[in-house]
Design a protein around this nucleic acid. Structure first.
Lengths: 267, 267
DNA sequence: CGGCGGATTGAGCGGCTTCAAAAAGCGTGG
DNA sequence: CCACGCTTTTTGAAGCCGCTCAATCCGCCG
């Protein structure tokens, strides 16, 4: 579930207000193609996509490039980076992009003032790991047509509000970028897209994706949106809260009574 | 950095004692090849590898399989799973395996009694995301020989204590499993390993990997261990602590003074 | 010794790549 | 509105990397 939807469902109006105020104060425009973050940088910001798309990618010395994640409006990007000294990936604007740049202090501020928001931040981070796994089996195991079908399905579903049935959605990637996301060449992406078009499944032109037959497309891709956690319940958030409450506790010096007692019994 | 090393470096003896007692109480043997976790299961445990190797993998309906992560002794496995309703991956024993199974309650208990341990848990989870990214560019962009060289480098480095110079290490994967981890076929893995052997870089036989020329192997693979975060400083842990303290705070009802004030100034 | 999982080898093929060039789209400015 | 330059898409032809199918070999263990 996109972060923005989590906010609407699980955050009370006051906290949401904090969030939106903070975003509006930190907004910044990025021109298409330019990097927000480069490998080796010291991370300074948590980015929140306001409009346009961003991509996270890695690069080899010879220029080969793999897109490892896409970020659509409302998505959080790079929370985990704030926790390391040097980032190991790049982030770039897929097209003209508007983001909010939140500093560590901003995030801390928000987390202190709106604890339930803090939990959503973490939840969103963890959901990202599931997406990495799915992309990995995509690139590692699926054929060209399956990979591309899968990517199209994901991008389509991520843009559907709740249970939408719109047939079209934005699609800002060039065929070269599709290639970088799927581990194929641009030429082969082109030919494979023609194949999908010839089968009457999709149309893809000038920044717009038309899905003609989602069922068959999803079947080719073996796509299920499970890994997107679109059905996330407040259960999940509560569960996270359950852990975080204890993890964040400040009483470092408490004796670990229960465990020591366990140990004693065992000995 | 493997979790076990983090423990040694950043955890005081008392907390480490808690941890080890808990592990010893929850130990369990798993026979080679059998699954600890299956896709769709409700997650119940955080697994800690005590001896042997475990693999996390995903599978398509037709049986194609991608290994998305390997877990060596001392590694944590599947903390994030505890936060969702249904897991989206499988975990299996690469060989005969000994793990500790910690329940949610166990983890909560540990987190409450040893807050610094809790932070290490989270840190370890976040480091995992970097590994996913590296595996993705591996599978997506590198050639067969590069992929395999990279996997060998990773497994070798992960088994080196601090700045070790041992030439050999355990290697429990079959060639079929190497294939599943790299997105190649078993046959081609075999031929590529012969190539590496012929070039005098490695020897790989019966559960043991000999590295003859690590420098060249790493060069072929464009391997840098950065993504393993072996040099993690206590800085990282402190930074995590900085966030978690506020995120876990219990005072849900505090007014978000600062933010509201910001909003006022802006209006 | 036989059985079995794993490694090795061979031959043929095809999916995807590579290189190169042309066509089409798109923004910009005259 | 058209001309121009740039990016993106499309097409062609040739070739290779890695796949498939299938058989054999090897080492280990009961």
């Amino acid at each position: 579930m996109p972060f923005s939807m989590m906010l609407r469902r699980f955050l009370d109006p006051q906290d949401r207000y904090c969030w939106e105020v903070m975003l509006s104060r930190r907004a910044r425009q990025i021109e298409r193609g330019s990097d927000l973050v480069r490998e080796g940088d010291t991370p300074h910001f948590l980015y929140v996509v306001l409009a346009g798309w961003a991509q996270k990618y890695k690069q080899l010395q010879d220029g080969r490039r793999q897109i490892v994640g896409l970020f659509l409006p409302g998505d959080l990007c790079d929370l985990d980076a704030l926790l390391v000294d040097r980032v190991d990936h790049n982030i770039a604007a897929v097209r003209d992009l508007s983001v909010a740049e939140l500093t560590r202090t901003d995030v801390r501020q928000l987390a202190e003032d709106c604890p339930s928001l803090a939990r959503l931040l973490f939840w969103s981070e963890l959901a990202g790991a599931a997406a990495y796994r799915e992309w990995m089996i995509n690139v590692g195991q699926r054929s060209a047509i399956e990979r591309i079908a899968h990517l199209l399905c994901e991008i389509y579903v991520r843009q559907q509000p709740d249970a939408g049935v719109r047939r079209r959605c934005d699609f800002f990637l060039t065929q070269s970028q599709v290639a970088e996301a799927t581990g194929l060449t641009q030429v082969h992406v082109n030919r494979t897209l023609q194949e999908l078009r010839a089968r009457g499944l999709v149309q893809l032109r000038q920044r717009e994706l038309h899905i003609e037959n989602f069922g068959e497309l999803a079947q080719i891709a073996q796509f299920t949106g499970d890994y997107l956690h679109r059905e996330a319940s407040s259960n999940n958030v509560d569960r996270l809260s359950y852990f975080l409450q204890s993890m964040g506790s400040r009483n470092e010096t408490d004796a670990p009574d229960v465990i020591v007692e366990l140990a004693r019994r065992r000995a």
